[in-house]
Amino acid sequence: MVPRPFRLVGRRQDTTDTFTVLLEPTEGDPLGFVPGQFTMLSAFGVGEVPVSVSGAAHVAGPLQHTVRDVGAVTHALSRASVGDVLGVRGPYGTGWDVAHGHGKDVVFVAGGIGLAPLRPAVLEVLSHRDRYRRVVVLYGTRSPDDLLFADSLADWQGQGVELLVTVDYGPPSWAGRVGLVTTLIPRAGFDPKYTLAFVCGPEVMMRRSAMALVERGVTPDSIRVSLERNMRCGVGLCGHCQFRELFICVDGPVLSYARVAGLLGYREV
């Protein structure tokens, strides 16, 4: 329950309110994790937040977290500069089980900052590109200014990823798509019978996307979603993140849609 000190070795402003921090432990081994896991990230004296890892799991390098500045702790994190020390606990939770997609099409559906937790999974798949058939990334965000990881997206296309991007609102200069991310699902080239899909974003977006995938013919047990609840401890002790019988920090955040589809239908569970 005690955070390890990590030093900020790099920082990138991704959009007006979203930034990425690169962290290295002040001593000891780097943090091992699997794509989809999160850590509890501390700004000392302010507090702690759960943040998914957004960097590659399979290559050595600093721990990457992509954070949106929406509250007191994330604001304090946004003000940290290179050389500062932050606290890291974890990694915690379940990951994206990309290996179950071997020999299949893999489809990533990302909404907003939901692309950040998916990024390590996409990188993992691309590091073993030959084990998968088609790789599709469907990404919806608010506006062209909110697009994350633009360099990565271009790289992925170069590595044979079918990338479809859409925004909620676009200026006339935006030549891309405008519309909800779910509208990309019927257009993408994948075989629903042999597909493993990973969905991450706001819960309403994930519910709609999962429904659209099922409509296309993907079975609910071939769809993964990453649920978000108030996580304070990361190890199932504090009780905050309960989703009926699930501790989202331990049993999730990544869960099979087949497991949670019914529960997602109830309000305020």
């Binding site: 759960p50 943040v51 949106r68 929406v70 909404g111 900052i113 608010r142 909800l180 706001p202 978000e228």
Partner: peptide
């Protein structure tokens, strides 16, 4: 209708950035 929610806006901040 779903886009009316402005899901990716500040009020629906997306994934794992609650406080």
């Amino acid at each position: 209708r779903v886009r009316l929610l402005d899901l990716y806006g500040a009020a629906g901040a997306g994934h794992a950035a609650p406080r």
